[in-house]
C-alpha cells in the first residue's frame, strides 16, 4: 500500500469517527442520563452551519454568588439540581469545588452585579440552543414567540427545556410547551 493510500485510509476513518462520536455521546446521554426540566424562554436565531435554532435563556441563569467564588473573571462552578413538586428542576446549591452526583452540572459563572448587598452571578450553561430546521411562517413564528418569550408568564404557560445530565455534563433534548415538544407544535401549525 502506498503512503498516500495509508494517509487517505486513516483520514477516511477519522472522518467517520467525528460524527459517530457525537451520535455515541447522544445515545449515552439518552441511555444513562438523568432527566431534568428547567424553565426557559427562547428566541429564534440562525446558525450558518446548522440552520435555524431556538436560542434559549434559562430562568435559573441568575443566582447569588457562592461564598468562596473569586472576585474576577469566569469560574467553573458545579450546580446541583433538584426537581420540585411541579416537576421543574431548580438549582439547589452552587459550589466552586468539584462535586459529583446524578443531577450535578458543571457550569461557568461570571459576576453580574449586586442585589441588596449580595453579589450576583450569571451562569453559562453547556447548552443554549435547540435546532428546529423548519422555516417558520410569520404566524407560527408569532405563536412560538408568544409561548417562549421572556414576557409570556402572564399567560400562565411555562416553557421547559428538557435535558439529560451525565457525569457533570448536560445535553438539551427538547423544549416543551404545555408538555408538548416545540418541534411538534411547529410541525402541526405548519401543516
Amino acid at each position: 500500500m502506498r503512503p498516500a493510500s495509508v494517509v487517505f485510509a486513516l483520514a477516511a476513518l477519522a472522518q467517520w469517527l467525528v460524527p459517530l462520536a457525537g451520535i455515541g455521546q447522544y445515545e449515552r446521554f439518552m441511555a444513562r442520563g438523568t432527566v431534568a426540566r428547567l424553565e426557559c424562554s427562547a428566541s429564534s436565531s440562525y446558525d450558518p452551519l446548522r440552520g435555524r435554532y431556538l436560542d434559549l435563556w434559562l430562568a435559573e441563569s441568575g443566582q447569588f454568588a457562592p461564598r468562596d467564588m473569586p472576585e474576577r473573571g469566569a469560574v467553573p462552578v458545579w450546580a446541583t439540581l433538584i426537581a420540585g413538586d411541579d416537576g421543574i428542576s431548580r438549582i439547589q446549591s452552587l459550589s466552586v469545588t468539584p462535586t459529583s452526583g446524578p443531577s450535578v452540572i458543571r457550569l461557568v459563572a461570571r459576576h453580574s452585579g449586586e442585589s441588596n448587598g449580595a453579589k450576583r452571578i450569571s451562569l453559562e450553561w453547556p447548552f443554549d440552543r435547540l435546532y428546529t430546521a423548519r422555516r417558520l411562517t410569520p404566524e407560527t413564528a408569532k405563536f412560538v414567540a408568544g409561548r417562549l418569550s421572556v414576557g409570556r408568564y402572564d399567560s400562565g404557560k411555562v416553557a421547559l427545556a428538557e435535558i439529560r445530565i451525565l457525569d457533570g455534563r448536560a445535553l438539551l433534548v427538547d423544549v416543551l410547551v404545555d408538555g408538548v415538544s416545540i418541534r411538534d407544535v411547529v410541525r402541526r401549525r405548519g401543516e
Binding site: 457525537g22 447522544y26 453547556p126 447548552f127 445535553l171
Partner: peptide, 13 residues
C-alpha cells in the same frame, strides 16, 4: 456530515 449530525442530535458543540 459533522454539521448535520450535530443538528439532528442537537449536540452542544
Amino acid at each position: 456530515a459533522m454539521a448535520l449530525v450535530s443538528q439532528i442530535y442537537n449536540l452542544p458543540e
